[in-house]
């Protein structure tokens, strides 16, 4: 069989190798193998097609399961973040907070703790709004954290930061004491916060205190109309050359001198528009830039003198230098 391929040199080797093909299976072994083959051929796993189908189905199932699990996990985490003390998912939210605290680097842990403290305050405020009882352990937790912050304010970002957080907690506890006057724990915590704020007063600089600790000053700043804001109307990008500045001048100067009380009730976004300009007649809103306002140097002229009458803008030739 191999004489066409090999030379005499390999004849001896091929003769020995031919012996590899001599042994034959015994009749018993032959029959046994055939029976095994027949049995396996009738098994569904022996078919190559059926081997591939489960793998595709398996991967599809696995992928869809992973997606469904991820969606479920995300929705549960989101729902737990919205939960309040007493809800079923609230322990999960607290557990996630604990995990966050454990995993975050030590340098950022204080910031996260303060963030969680503010979250407690929001939860308590929400409970008060819903007229649900405030768990005493939440009050105790707030008190403990505040005590820690007051003792070592520098480790929580300084007295100013601590004071800001205390203001929020004070407001929260004040709401609790108003809603539940017999809640001794809340009252005690409220008094402790007031005392803590007083103890922090010497360390506070004036500017942040006036903003952070006295909310009334903030309201004053918001509602008092600034004269500069009134005098800076928005220039319109589409000018109409036909419009003349004359009709606009009168209402502008009037508004500047006496801001009307109705101005406080203007809707958001229109606070800086003068009342007189909202009622400009149609066709005059699109005044060209530089013409919609009073000309420079004429803003503060008294009413009636804002503009020289027509024909008197320029002195006739030859009369300019007369005394």
């Amino acid at each position: 069989m191999n004489s066409d391929l090999f030379t005499n040199q390999e004849d001896e080797v091929t003769a020995r190798l031919e012996k590899l093909g001599q042994p034959c299976l015994s009749a018993t072994a032959r029959r046994r193998i055939w029976q095994k083959a027949y049995a396996r051929a009738n098994m569904p796993t022996a078919k190559p097609v059926s081997r591939q189908q489960p793998s595709v189905t398996f991967w599809r199932l696995a992928a869809s399961s992973v997606i469904v699990l991820a969606l479920m996990l995300t929705s549960v985490v989101w729902a737990s973040a919205q939960s309040l003390p007493g809800d079923a998912l609230y322990p999960l939210a607290r557990g996630l907070e604990a995990v966050q605290l454990a995993l975050i680097p030590a340098t950022q842990r204080v910031s996260l703790e303060m963030q969680f403290l503010d979250r407690r305050a929001m939860e308590v405020q929400r409970l008060v709004e819903l007229q649900r009882p405030v768990p005493p352990e939440i009050i105790a937790e707030i008190s403990t954290t505040i005590e820690k912050m007051t003792q070592t304010p520098e480790s929580f970002g300084g007295a100013t930061v601590v004071a800001a957080h205390l203001a929020l907690q004070e407001e929260t506890l004040r709401q609790v004491t108003v809603q539940y006057p017999h809640d001794d724990a809340a009252s005690a915590a409220f008094e402790a916060i007031v005392a803590a704020q007083l103890s922090l007063q010497p360390f506070l600089t004036p500017t942040p205190v006036s903003i952070l600790l006295t909310p009334s000053s903030t309201f004053t700043l918001t509602f008092s109309p600034s004269p500069t804001s009134v005098l800076t109307p928005t220039p319109d990008p589409t000018p109409t050359p036909s419009a003349t500045p004359t009709p606009i001048l009168v209402p502008t100067s009037t508004v500047t001198a006496t801001p009307e009380p109705e101005q406080e009730k203007t809707p958001p976004g229109q606070e800086n528009t003068p009342p007189g300009q909202e009622k400009t007649p149609p066709g005059q809103e699109n005044t060209p830039p530089g013409q919609e306002n009073t000309p420079p140097g004429q803003e503060n002229t008294p009413p009636g003198q804002e503009k020289t009458p027509p024909g008197q803008e320029k002195t006739p030739p030859g009369q300019e230098k007369k005394p």
């Binding site: 193998i33 095994k36 083959a37 027949y38 049995a39 396996r40 051929a41 022996a46 078919k47 190559p48």
Partner: peptide
């Protein structure tokens, strides 16, 4: 046996 099972299939 596996080879001949595959052959039959």
């Amino acid at each position: 046996a596996e080879v001949f099972a595959q052959m039959l299939v």
